[in-house]
């Protein structure tokens, strides 16, 4: 089992690759039907976020363990402009682009854990997890 896959995000086709990889790992971890779609959609959202705001970044998908639980961990990293006001960015309906402003806050709703860290001028890292129940 490949424990980690790393996908560069520089064009829309790589978003598709990222979510396919995520789905493959999620299947290996034993996630079922609707959870697979949840994970793939969440990866798609954050990968899209990289492309729209930073143009270049990567998504790392791996297995994670915590005590007796295990699940899938997705880290999206970019070296773009960063987010000045994270609280604002995480508000439902807020968008700097023409988007619906649903990407990040919506993704947070989909996953079990969601952390965002950003330094203006240096980039943004989103870490999210979904546990097997």
């Amino acid at each position: 089992m490949a424990d980690e896959s790393r996908i560069n995000i520089r064009n829309p086709a790589e978003i598709v690759t990222a979510r396919q990889q995520g789905r493959i790992l999620a299947v290996q971890l034993g996630f079922d039907g609707s959870e697979l779609t949840v994970i793939a959609t969440a990866i798609s959202e954050i990968a899209r976020n990289i492309l729209e705001h930073a143009k270049d970044g990567e998504v790392v998908i791996s297995r994670c363990n915590h005590r007796k639980r295990y699940g899938i961990c997705v880290v999206a990293r970019d070296f773009g402009p960063g987010i000045a006001d994270i609280d604002q960015a995480m508000q439902y309906g807020y968008s700097t682009h023409k988007g619906l402003g649903i990407g990040l806050p919506g993704t947070k709703l989909l996953m079990d854990e969601f952390h965002i860290m950003s330094v203006v001028g240096q980039g943004t890292t989103v870490t999210m997890k979904k546990w097997r129940h």
Binding site: S34, T41, I102
Partner: peptide, 14 residues
């Protein structure tokens, strides 16, 4: 639209 996809869409608010 598949059942799973529909469910995820509404969860996202789409």
């Amino acid at each position: 639209i598949r059942p799973d996809v529909a469910f995820v869409m509404v969860q996202l608010g789409l």
